[in-house]
Design a protein around this nucleic acid. Structure first.
Lengths: 222, 222
DNA sequence: CCAATACTCTAACACCCGTTAGAGTGTTGG
DNA sequence: CCAACACTCTAACGGGTGTTAGAGTATTGG
């Protein structure tokens, strides 16, 4: 019997599985789905020590899910391909579908139903194209530049209050951020409503959008 | 900051990731993609102790990837949804794409190039529909009954030599089994060639076929 | 060339996981 | 009701993993 060969094959896939078996590494993958980042930035956004981030990134690197390139004094990490981002979305989707605890938490924390549009992606895209709705990307601007939804304009959460005048009054606003686990679009919607805008969010981020085969735009490299 | 909430979400997905972090559990998922099976059968096919299989199945059950139903003295396990099978295919595909060791092993062990058809799935489907090619499913018959490719006939590896007469002489034969990590179709092709047939294999199994959105047929329940 | 910066590497600890043995539970056939 | 069977549960051991601290390495600005 060819047991050894078979075992070897499954052990190789296990390497990828092991890389996905830590919540911190999953968060790093989620962040890296937004574009490449340095260790320091990743550690800051994931609220962990940069030493720990480094260790986890090494694990991801050994599983060939990420790669690092030196940029001066910094090392910028990025996913080794869009299939990695798709795998993360796939994994998260299965978790959402099967784990009741996760469904409940998502409903409670993230997707207060009156804030989440029920509109299909395609119809939103069409309305955005016609200008019937303003789609804003509330992530930090660097992530917007690395890739964003079509017809979306960048309006980082931290700057919204200073830039309210940029938004056409009376027009519907739809906010998005990093994806279903990101809370920035929630805060953005709350802020905009406080100032009288008709605001909603979509749960999708760029990774979910792209995993569905929909177009994503990127600004030229800096 | 809502760190706690965010951590909770990623920790939930981590449960699924952890379930995928063991080669034995991955093999069980691969087997269960072929249809439901009892602990004993799974243990036999994965070449492990049934106690160990039971323990791993419990881990998969806690991650909601499988569920067990008692059938008399036996307990039959099955995947909790077709999305689980798709996740396994997705994970394996990413591993194949990024791990050179795996690519090399696959080329060496499994897909001796002269045996693997390079034909597209759709054109094979069309030729099978017209009867230009005979597609045989060389897995155990129970797995064929649980789901098989359209126009395929069941011809378990163990019975091929007794049933050679069933195959129309001179017609091209294409064999498939459980998927890229399964060796049965290789043996089938070797056997058929020994008896003078023009035989090839496809690497896909039912799970890969279905993950691509192609149709799968199932026999009625026994 | 030196100091500062950004990150990695090594070592060490506690904790978790895979595996196995042995006892326990639910089901069936006689 | 009992014996046989299929499987699960519990306990225990060794090895692996997450985390942190401290030393080491590459790069840059002065």
């Amino acid at each position: 019997m060819k047991r050894d060969a078979k075992d070897f094959l499954f052990e190789q896939v296990e390497r990828i599985g092991k890389a996905l078996a830590s919540s911190k590494r999953l968060e790093l993958l989620d962040l890296l789905s937004q574009g490449e980042m340095t260790v320091e930035v990743l550690a800051g956004k994931a609220a962990i020590d940069s030493k720990l981030a480094s260790a986890h990134l090494r694990a991801l690197k050994e599983a060939r899910l990420v790669e690092g390139v030196r940029k001066g004094r910094f090392i910028a990490y990025r996913l080794t391909g869009s299939d990695v981002s798709r795998l993360w979305v796939n994994l998260r989707t299965v978790a959402e579908a099967h784990l009741i605890e996760l469904q409940q938490a998502l409903e409670r924390i993230i997707a207060a139903p009156d804030r989440l549009t029920t509109e299909s992606r395609l119809s939103l895209l069409e309305r955005a194209r016609r200008g019937d709705v303003v789609v804003i990307d509330v992530r930090p601007e660097a992530e917007y530049r690395a890739g964003h939804l079509p017809f979306a304009r960048s309006m980082p959460l931290a700057e919204i209050e200073q830039r309210l005048a940029d938004l056409p009054a009376g027009k519907e606003v739809v906010a998005y951020c990093r994806g279903p686990f990101c809370l920035m679009s929630n805060e953005a919607v709350a802020l905009l409503r406080k100032y009288g805008f008709q605001a909603q969010k979509i749960a999708d981020g760029v990774a979910e959008w792209a995993a569905d085969g929909l177009p994503v735009e990127a600004a030229a490299a800096p």
